[in-house]
Design a protein around this nucleic acid. Structure first.
Lengths: 292, 292
DNA sequence: ATTGATCATAGTTAAAAACTATTGATATCA
DNA sequence: TGATATCAATAGTTTTTAACTATGATCAAT
């Protein structure tokens, strides 16, 4: 079956006149007649009673006209959906971020977006990187804030900023007075790290192994906040990314690294095939401004 | 917009795979791809996210897929309606009859049809001929039992039977002993007739004028039953069609005409363009049998 | 690097639907 | 009653649409 035929049929059903119906459909009367004849032929039913005096709907024609009206209305609905959807900035936008970033950056992103893109329906998700990648692949989220590198050719990314690492020591620690520190100096220290699955654990662990720094292997924190509290309580030392530092915090000292400064690179990541690239780029831009 | 494109789109929405969707639609993959591309182009929206790894619906694609499903279901509804309607014998059949016939023939027609065509949804209408013709023209009824002639070229008819006229006189009337009567003998009688608008009045009036019979002009009965009662009560004489006679009735005598027997011809009448000719012919046949 | 899977594109053929002109059947009017 | 007008159907042709095959591009897996 064919929408054209249905449209023509409904026009005749309304006009009760082939010529006028054809006019309304912007086609010639024979074209319209033929389409309707074919429709009747295909359905095996007579929809219209014709005479040169008047055109009438058969009983079954009436019923089919009602269905046809429903179909054409639904077509209009689709067109409206399409039109309204063109403004992706007034639709859902699902953004993920991994835990050691999420808590520190999402609040300000939300505030910024509410101000700049008030119609955007922002939906946030805090998960570890692996989960985010999987949800990104499956289309459950539109984009994610991730630490580089992300090596999947189906994704594209936009680097937002570098998040420098700081050495976090208790105020009582022997290094706490230092303004800067060289990684090489940590030879005989042992760092506390996060539990498995956190990308920040992997990054810190890589660093330790590369630089020959020890790791406090008995202990694995479930979050950066736990880690911070452990440092404050004098249990040990660790590395904290810049974004997670607090201003004017007592009991803990953040020491920047000298010479080689380790950092993580945060980027917005999305599917190449995504239909929301415009929104994604815009949110990326806003996020960049936030951390300037 | 085009049903084909919608069908293909929904297939991909279900299969999440162009190749398999194309198979299900019995077309080549490029044909299907092109149709979907055109649909997206026309709507100005991306419905699907494609990569060579997987196919995903966009948010708006999901919404439009729901509408599309509704449309295709409604198409199925139309096909079902058409299929089921093909048996016109299980649908409505609206039959009209004029008053001086209806009361005497419709009851037995109903009984016969209930027995022979039990699925037929018979709807009856008793109206004067003019009203019936108008409703027949407008399609409000499918057929009518009418007295001939009916001269409208848009109609067809099937003659059912001739309904002979009888002279009805009170038992006390001077003619009541007669077995037969010649119309010419009624020169000095005055007949009571029905009110205006009844075709039977017209027929009787024609007869009176043709044969020089008088008409009781003060009195116009609203129905044949009134007329019959008037005769019984001895008020006057009249003509009654055969079908309206009662068996073994007291107080009234029906005398058949000799030589020239006046009668009315009853036929089934319908629009040439009617889609129910089969049912109509069948009902005609049943009605003929009834009066045999 | 090669292979295999998947969707897009190009070019061509086949099918569908449009158009104009005309016919046929009725209805209206002189 | 015959001429004219109306209206849908039909015929024949052109245009448009959609199918097909073959090939290209991309990317994951081997």
């Amino acid at each position: 079956m064919n929408l054209r035929g249905l449209r023509y049929f409904l026009a005749v059903a309304k006009e009760k006149h082939f010529g006028r119906a054809a006019e309304k459909c912007f086609v010639s009367q024979p074209s319209l007649s033929t389409q309707i004849k074919n429709l009747e032929l295909e359905l095996g039913v007579q929809l219209l009673e014709r005479s040169n005096k008047k055109v009438m709907l058969t009983e079954i024609g009436e019923e089919i006209a009602v269905s046809t009206q429903r179909i054409l209305s639904e077509i209009d609905t689709i067109k409206e959906l399409a039109e309204n959807s063109n403004d992706a900035f007034s639709r859902k936008f699902k953004l993920g971020a991994f835990p050691t970033l999420a808590a520190y950056i999402l609040p300000s992103i939300v505030t910024k977006i509410q101000k700049e893109l008030p119609k955007l329906n922002l939906i946030l998700l805090e998960e570890k990187t692996e989960i985010l990648l999987q949800k990104l692949r499956s289309g459950e989220i539109d984009a994610a804030l991730l630490a580089m590198p992300v090596n999947e050719s189906q994704f594209q990314h936009d680097i937002l900023f570098n998040d420098e690492f700081y050495l976090a020591v208790p105020e009582t620690h022997k290094l706490s007075h230092r303004k800067k520190i060289d990684i090489a100096e940590l030879d005989d220290e042992k760092l506390m790290l996060l539990e498995d699955g956190h990308c920040f654990r992997e990054q810190a662990l890589d660093l330790c192994q590369r630089e020959g720094i020890g790791v406090e292997d008995e202990f694995r924190a479930t979050s950066l906040e736990t880690l911070r509290l452990m440092v404050k309580s004098g249990t040990g030392i660790t590395i904290i990314p810049n974004i997670a530092r607090h201003q004017n915090e007592t009991g803990i000292t953040y020491i920047p690294f000298d010479k080689i400064c380790p950092y993580r690179t945060i980027a917005m990541v999305w599917r190449k095939s995504s239909s929301k690239k415009k929104v994604i780029r815009h949110v990326s831009k806003l996020t960049k401004k936030l951390v300037e």
